[in-house]
Design a protein around this nucleic acid. Structure first.
Lengths: 109, 109
DNA sequence: GATCACTAGGTTGTCTAGTTATATAGACGG
DNA sequence: CCGTCTATATAACTAGACAACCTAGTGATC
């Protein structure tokens, strides 16, 4: 297994917002999902994820609610706010622009 | 004109290596090229570029040589070393992996 | 010949955000 | 009762990008 790429700074928010859009969940699960859905290419460690979630919450892009999991554990479930959905759209667009420009540079082989 | 996206941390090296591969040049010109070839999507700050060039030189990925431009100005012309070409290949691959994974996440709309 | 714009290289200080390491605590299996 | 998994959290460190400067030479314009 190739070692997971370090997350490019700035992309974690986008990933988190996107995953929360498709389904609200907690931090721990989010980390698992990121790894799973990227087929182990991406990996986020807890020390990056939790602070990122706080930042998003402070900015009003996500909201948190303590809930019980089906196994009886407490978990802080995050979901997108309206502002979060908006931010997701603009971050998606920004990523598309950036990735497009970079791959254009790389393709002029 | 949309304002240029901030460079994602870690991608500047890749861009620089790629542009130097296709043609050795100096820092100032490099900055212009990045903007031009990305159609103004990408833009590098001098305060980012010069330190980046030093780092690349320290790591032995590029080498510098003072030359005179055709207009009689001194300029530090950077070119890729063999190690630089190797590093470029692996950074291209890493970018492809990362961008692929991320766009995969975003496409499961 | 003063002023301005452009080429060219550089530094400093600040801030964001990701990494590693560590801690806590409840649940569950053996 | 011990280890492992779930789950959250924080502190210390670090890389690298940014804004805001500075120097100096060239060439045009007024």
């Amino acid at each position: 297994m190739a070692k997971p790429a370090p997350l490019l700074q700035g992309t974690l928010d986008l990933i988190v917002l996107e995953l929360l859009r498709s389904e609200p969940t907690n931090g721990y699960d989010l980390a698992q999902r990121i790894q799973a859905v990227s087929r182990d290419v991406l990996q986020v460690n807890a020390g990056s994820l939790y602070p990122a979630l706080y930042r998003l919450e402070e900015r009003g892009l996500v909201k948190a609610a303590w809930k019980e999991t089906d196994t009886g554990r407490r978990a802080k479930v995050y979901s997108l706010t309206a502002a979060g959905r908006k931010a997701l759209e603009s971050q998606r667009a920004e990523w598309a622009r950036f990735a497009g420009a970079l791959s254009h540079i790389l393709k002029r082989a």
